[in-house]
Design a protein around this nucleic acid. Sequence first.
DNA 1: AAGAGTCTCAACCGCTAGTTT
DNA 2: CAAACTAGCGGTTGAGACTCT
Length: 222
Amino acid sequence: MGRQPCCDKAGMRRGAWTAEEDQKLINFIINNGIHCWRLVPKLAGLMRCGKSCRLRWTNYLRPDLKREAISQEEESQIIQLHSRLGNRWSKIASYFPGRTDNEIKNHWNTRIKKRLNLLGLNPATHELINPPNASPQMMIDMKQKEIGVSSEDKSGYEHRIWMTFQSMNAEENRLQVNSSGSCSSSFSVQDSLCPSSSKDNSFPSSEATISLDDLFFYGNLL
DNA sequence: AAGAGTCTCAACCGCTAGTTT
DNA sequence: CAAACTAGCGGTTGAGACTCT
């Protein structure tokens, strides 16, 4: 025989929490702390299951939660972390004090994911999906490491996407594209390190536009 | 003004790893 | 050791808000 069930599901309230329920939960946790979620609803006088109380507290009532919208910097960080960690939302959230895994997951699913799709990027892998007119050479010579999309708004805030590549024979490079399609690259690969098979033997140089012109097309879509 | 379509996000569901009996 | 539970996680849903026509 195992332990007692956490709650009797019959008679439990579900759905949106009322202000009164919130206050009961806050008061209880402030006065007693959190020891066992199973007992919280009973002791706090709530007709909710412990799981529901835990979720309400961690995602909404905790006093250390940030209330403001996710910033552009945070969004960039989320994209970078997601490229490394995948959908491990709690792990990603641990890098953002005051943010919850649910909040970051929602932001990803409703905004970032959509934008990556628009850019022709696979949100799961962050890699380009069939870029139009992509140079096969680029795909061979360059291994995409990370890609990010800065947020934009309707008040004319600059759209910006960036990609970090690891050239097969060279150091890491970073390239940024803004919404107008112009490019500010920071390639710093020396000629001697360039693959001999590249078109002009100077690929990718700081002047190289390579076939990332294709990428500018995406920039204009933002 | 109103109906339809879209978006947001709080809350729930189902699963898993670890714990307790 | 097995059964049953807890806490936490990621996926999904749906009500309400918002936007468009």
